[in-house]
Design a protein around this nucleic acid. Structure first.
Lengths: 204, 204
DNA sequence: AAAGTAATCCGCGCGAACACGTATAGTGAG
DNA sequence: CTCACTATACGTGTTCGCGCGGATTACTTT
């Protein structure tokens, strides 16, 4: 199965809930880690981790929604499943609109939990793939000099070399040299590829 | 204001609710239309309309969620605000995940209603713009012959003309002629533009 | 401190390869 | 017959690899 290295992080202040959830998930052959509060989880988690977080809304200290916000701030793109005993509709709407994949109410059935976890892990795999692409693109683009970046930005907007040359007030041959170096440095095989790369790297 | 031609469609079986909502929205200088049930709204609405729909979940005949699904099937991309007196959390989660912009509970405050309507109309404007682009792209691409489409698909993946020629087992000059016709028919000014167009037209 | 050295960036010219518009024309399907 | 597809030929413009030079910065050597 593809979820071999995915981990479900359970953050809940109630030990009984933690154990119960952990058991249900472990029985599906998915690895689990439990945390007593948001702070402990924040200390432990990494931006690259694959899996999902099951977060209790109501906790002493930082609550679930604050944790969601903090994770987002720290660029930790872990899909979140909220779990609560005392939620209301506005809260659930806010959570889902803020990007949570699900909002479950206690007591949760095994079926709903596992279904939510599976789709969250699936989401996490997508995010991880995209993140790798993004990181790869960014690191390649980082090798470019400022001037090369100038040329690239115009090139991927479809300007021909002559136009770029006019725009930057340099010889058209120089533009081509820059472009050539850009291609080599980024490993792009053609302009379309470069445009895709720049797009993935967030430069558009 | 930019919402001059946006219309809020209210679908609710309770006349008192309809009138109350319509009044609040009309006071914001936004035009309103009311409908007693889902079927009447479906008969009246068009795919191109700008604005949003405020839909009661619980209605005789087709209910709010079914209406959402039906609108989606008919490709009517109107942002939806649900309104209900007897909703629960799973329902709200499902609705938001299915694309609704908000899920309000009766009785709704004027403030929340207007805020939801404004963001929904803003969303509608985005959708409309995208939809125009998509439609435009599709209609341009529709003029292409099958062979031209073959050539285009390879071209926008970055293959040089010679490769395309080898791949299709035709002369490289013929490929260039196809490409030229493609550019003329679609109005694209260069390859990147064509790729963007194909992307907008959903051909990738 | 001064001189040499390496690295980096920016620039130019030449020539080969490639792309593209125009013109001309043959073949097969509807 | 018309339209789509194919092909050929010529001319022009664009792209791109290669070699070379000037300017700046930083690091090492003397």
């Amino acid at each position: 199965m593809s979820n071999a290295d995915a981990t479900v992080f359970i953050i809940d202040d109630d030990p009984a809930i933690r154990d119960s959830l952990a058991l249900m998930i472990a029985q599906e052959n998915i690895s689990v880690m439990t945390f007593e509060n948001a702070e402990a989880f924040l200390d432990a988690c990494q931006p690259e981790c694959l899996g999902c977080a099951i977060i209790d809304i109501r906790m002493p200290g930082m609550d679930g929604m604050q944790l969601q916000e903090e994770l987002s701030k720290r660029n930790i793109l872990l899909p979140i499943i909220f779990l609560t005993g005392h939620g209301d509709i506005p809260m659930s709407v806010r959570a889902i609109k803020a990007g949570a994949v699900d909002f479950l109410t206690k007591p949760v059935t095994r079926e709903k939990l596992i279904s939510a976890v599976r789709s969250a892990i699936c989401e996490s795999e997508k995010i991880t793939t995209e993140s790798i692409h993004h990181h790869d693109a960014t690191s390649r683009l980082a090798a470019l000099t400022d001037r090369e970046r100038d040329v690239m930005m115009l090139a991927i907007q479809g300007y021909p070399n002559k136009e770029i040359a006019r725009h930057l007030e340099i010889s058209h041959r120089t533009v081509e040299i820059h472009k050539s170096k850009i291609m080599h440095k980024t490993g792009a095989i053609n302009l379309l590829d470069l445009a895709r790369l720049a797009h993935e790297g967030g430069l558009i």
